[in-house]
């Protein structure tokens, strides 16, 4: 087993982070549950679905425009987890839900997430295949398709969680014009966050998106893994602080060490 050049330090950093996550998962298994702060955007999903129900409208869910085979894959999976939770609420309240999909490989996951949710709520007979709609693999194809759904199908709750790019602003504006309560979140493409923050009612950003599924599941094991991530953050803060001090002292062995 030979290490690839330049990846040794990264490997050990990953081992520490993964080790911390596994440690906190095991702690959760023996009943030591970590306290996780509430994320307002996630709490608001229930309110949004409730409002759509009261107004006789529908819920539109967009799990981003990313696929599964790219770096946006984890964001898409996070979106699908929240879709599962939203679909459960819709099944419980009898509210129409539509998931707008861009990348075809996401279709089976979205179908599974919604059908499982309806099955778990004992309402599988109400599940319809057209709840999952592949609109287009083109970025603007899905954007205009989703904007059309917002207008035609009386969307009163618009939830967008996953990877979004330039179409984010148009989707959020169209949702606002349709009078929908809007919850949006994206992680890797931070350039879209200002628009989501300005236009939408609730906004999730960065790692909040990745932990959404775990937080909504209220599963202690998943919540434990989030606490483990904080060890990584602490390690990053330490490295940044030490790095700044060493830079000021003109000592570069840490930089050389991190490059091995």
């Amino acid at each position: 087993m030979v290490f690839k050049e330049g990846r040794i330090a990264t490997f050990f950093a990953l081992v520490i982070v993964v080790g911390a996550i596994l440690y906190f998962i095991n702690r959760a298994k023996i009943g030591k549950i970590s306290k996780i702060r509430k994320i307002p955007g996630l709490i608001a999903i229930e309110e949004a679905v409730g409002r759509a129900t009261e107004m006789g409208g529908s819920v539109l869910f967009i799990p981003g425009i990313g696929g599964l085979t790219t770096v946006e894959g984890p964001e898409t999976l996070a979106g699908i987890s929240v879709l599962n939770y939203t679909a459960k609420l819709c099944a419980r309240l009898g509210t129409k839900i539509v998931a707008a999909i861009r990348m075809p490989e996401v279709i089976p996951l979205a179908e599974e997430a919604i059908s499982t949710a309806f099955r778990m709520e004992g309402k599988f007979e109400e599940y319809r295949p057209d709840m999952v709609r592949y609109l287009s693999s083109d970025q603007w194809g899905i954007a205009t398709g989703a904007m059309g759904i917002m207008q035609r199908e009386r969307v009163k709750a618009n939830i967008m969680l996953g990877f979004f790019a330039g179409e984010a602003l148009a989707l959020a504006e169209a949702g606002a014009v349709a009078g929908a309560i809007q919850i949006a979140g994206t992680a890797t493409n931070t350039t879209q966050l200002p628009w989501f923050a300005s236009i939408c009612d609730y906004c999730l950003f960065g790692e909040e998106v990745y932990v959404a599924g775990a937080v909504l599941s209220e599963d202690p094991i998943q919540l434990g893994s989030i606490a483990g991530q904080d060890v990584g953050k602490f390690m990053a803060i330490c490295l940044i602080t030490i790095g700044i001090l060493m830079y000021l002292l003109k000592v570069d062995w840490l930089i050389r060490l991190l490059k091995i």
Partner: peptide
């Protein structure tokens, strides 16, 4: 940094089968 750590956490949960939303 937060995003990278979040992605690692989600990946671990997915690889170990704890992230169940899509299953």
């Amino acid at each position: 940094l937060g995003t990278a750590l979040g992605a690692i956490g989600l990946s671990i949960r997915t690889l170990l089968g704890y992230e169940k939303g899509y299953l």
